[in-house]
């Protein structure tokens, strides 16, 4: 256990050299590398934080935009839905109206058709009735009936009133030439005389008469001048009746 002082000095020198060497090759480079890495990591972290913040901002912006877009979309969808609904309603209304119009038209035409058929039927019936009446009367007509007709006719002339009478009298008075009397059968002389007398009495003058046969009258008599004619025949009677029935019918329709 002794100390070799040369060795001590040498070891001190050795140790100092080793300190320098290790400082030079170990501590300094390692610590520098660590510092550099720490700086690098710090800067990277900072960078990451910046990027993160940026990303968050972008994300927020994107989300906001997305929300706005969603809202807008919903609003637009609603608007479109409303529009579609109203359009549908309108179209339905149109169709309904149209169908109503068509139906009413159809109903009208149906009614009209029905009416026409009814009318035609009525007319036919009427015609038939009148034809039957006419046929019956013509079958029944004979001279004695003619006689009766003349009597009724004279009675009618006598009973003419107001304007008709004046018109009749004027027509006969102004008449020049013979007065034509038409009948189905040949009138008997007594009938002729009676008729002429009656006429004379009304017109207060001598008249010239001409007699003609006209089988279409069915039964009755007709007085004709150049400008006037007066008749009382079954035919005209039926005509008048028919006309009256048509008017009545029309009135009924109008009421309907």
């Amino acid at each position: 256990m002794e100390i070799n002082w040369f060795t001590v000095i040498a070891q001190i020198v050795n140790f100092l050299i080793l300190v320098w060497l290790l400082k030079r090759f170990l501590y300094k480079p390692v610590l520098d590398a660590i510092d550099a890495r720490e700086k690098k990591i710090a800067s990277q972290l900072e960078d990451a934080a910046t990027k993160k913040a940026e990303a968050k901002r972008d994300k927020d912006l994107f989300r906001q935009k997305n929300e706005a877009f969603d809202k807008e979309r919903v609003a637009k969808m609603n608007a479109v839905h409303e529009q579609i609904d109203s359009e549908k309603q309108r179209l339905l209304e149109d169709v309904r109206k149209e169908s109503t119009v068509l139906r009413s038209k159809f109903e009208q035409s149906l009614k009209q058709q029905e009416q026409e058929i009814v009318d035609r039927l009525k007319k036919k019936t009427k015609d038939a009735v009148f034809d039957i009446a006419k046929k019956t009367l013509s079958d029944l007509a004979d001279v004695s009936l003619e006689q009766q007709v003349v009597t009724v006719f004279i009675e009618k002339i006598r009973n003419l009133d107001g304007a008709s009478k004046t018109k009749f009298i004027d027509a006969l008075k102004d008449n020049e030439g013979p007065i034509t009397i038409k009948s189905v059968f040949d009138l008997s002389d007594s009938s002729k005389q009676e008729l002429e007398k009656a006429m004379e009495k009304i017109t207060e003058k001598q008249n010239d008469f001409r007699y003609e046969l006209e089988p279409e009258l069915v039964s009755g008599i007709k007085i004709e001048t150049a400008s006037y004619q007066l008749s009382w025949t079954i035919d005209s009677y039926l005509e008048a009746l028919k006309k009256e029935s048509i008017i009545t019918k029309e009135k009924e329709n109008a009421i309907d």
Binding site: L18, L21, L22, F25, L26, P29, V30, D32, A33, A36, R37, K40, I41
Partner: peptide, 17 residues
């Protein structure tokens, strides 16, 4: 030994991760 070892390792130090 120490100096050589230190030098061998630290001659290409990296500051990477």
């Amino acid at each position: 030994l120490l100096a050589l070892g230190a030098w061998l390792i630290t001659r290409n130090l990296k500051s990477e991760i």
